[in-house]
Design a protein around this nucleic acid. Structure first.
Length: 352
DNA sequence: AACTCGGGGAC
DNA sequence: GTCCCAGAGTT
């Protein structure tokens, strides 16, 4: 029995029932594929269901605002995916009459759709024989064929794509592609794969050579950058007695583009009260002398894959009614990073 | 070719 | 702590 035949049989017997497996609708497949980029199925699934409920068709998504899309995306990370998602929905509606391209080449032109996603949509929706090579496929192929070329090297990317193309089942590409990914996720797992009862164990080069834990090979460990964030949280007592505060939208390059946060003072190291008071006028233009107090004693360390954000929130109590101030009860309407969302959650449970 | 972009779960 | 997830875009 061939490699692909084994994959197809395993898939038929072991596949999970996932919401996007009941359809060939390119819109829904595209949505699921974007959401699952670098994201586990268990984490992405509730977001997929939320999006399908709010935006049943590409027209609904295109008619929404980026702000709404980011709000629904909040917490899923890699927010450029959400911005590209919205831009692509508008493009499909305005330039493609609401129809997604039905070929690999056509799909590649869409923002946020790269080699993997174009292959996935083309094969799943249109039965086009394009191999998918995601993290799961790299692992399965590296182990089964005993390939020790780094999967994230230029040579490796090219080699594994060609290998994937050679061993794919062109007649059953839809099930085969999903099958090899599912096989990698469930059976040929990164750690402690279930080799004992694996249908491919007798011919698996890595297993026979006792190299399961050494494959796949991956280079370049990410180095973490430490950053020191001071969020200045204005607390303004309005005339009606309500509390107001201020949010700012992150612009330009870097993390959390177009998401909202409190006015930020970033320093080279942990800042004390004097430091915050010194630079506060550059962040907030106040007419009075505010009362500034730290809201967390220990720095909150928010960990991203490549940055550690050492964060302190400062209450800035003022009587200046800043322009663009908003009622504190409206804070939850804005798309914010998890770091800010967690803070707002504590705020609800009376932080002041 | 190397870097950047989130957050979370498994270990 | 480490690894990695149904990767893409930029420099």
């Amino acid at each position: 029995m061939t490699f692909s035949q084994n994959i197809l049989i395993w898939y038929a017997q072991n596949k999970r029932t996932l919401p996007w497996r009941r359809t060939r609708d390119p819109y829904k497949i595209w949505l699921s594929e974007i959401m699952l980029q670098q994201t586990r199925v268990v984490q992405g699934t509730p977001y997929y269901l939320k999006f399908v409920a709010n935006f049943p068709t590409v027209y609904d998504l295109a008619a929404s605002s980026e702000e709404e899309v980011l709000k629904l995306w909040q917490g899923l990370g890699y927010y450029s995916r959400a911005r590209n998602l919205h831009a692509t929905a508008k493009m499909v509606v305005e330039e493609y009459e609401g129809n997604f391209p039905n070929t690999y080449e056509g799909l590649l032109k869409l923002k946020g759709v790269g080699d993997y996603t174009a292959s996935a949509i083309a094969s799943i929706c249109f039965d086009e024989a394009q191999p998918v090579v995601d993290g799961n496929v790299y692992r399965v192929l590296a182990r089964y064929f005993g390939v020790d070329i780094a999967i994230n090297s230029t040579e490796g990317v090219k080699y594994f794509k060609e290998l994937a193309r050679e061993v794919m089942d062109t007649e059953n590409i839809r099930d085969y592609n999903q099958g090899i990914m599912e096989f990698g996720a469930i059976q040929c797992a990164p750690k402690k794969p279930y080799c004992l009862h694996c249908p491919l164990n007798e011919s698996c080069v890595a297993l026979q050579g006792n190299k399961i834990e050494k494959l796949p090979v991956k280079l370049n460990k990410t180095k973490v950058r430490n950053r020191y964030f001071n969020y200045l949280v204005p607390v303004i007592e309005a005339k009606d007695g309500d509390l107001r505060t201020v949010l700012a939208q992150r612009k330009g390059k870097g993390i959390w583009q177009n998401l909202w946060e409190f006015p930020l003072l970033e320093c080279q190291a942990e800042a004390n009260l004097e430091k915050v008071k010194q630079f506060l006028p550059e962040i907030l233009e106040l007419k009075d002398i505010p009362e500034v107090t730290p809201l967390n004693e220990q720095l909150i360390v928010h960990k991203l894959s490549h940055q550690h954000l050492h964060t302190r929130f400062w209450k800035v109590k003022t009587k200046t009614d800043l322009t663009n101030s908003i009622p504190i009860k409206n804070l939850e309407d804005y798309p914010v990073p998890v770091l800010i969302a967690d803070f707002i959650e504590r705020l609800k449970n009376s932080y002041f």
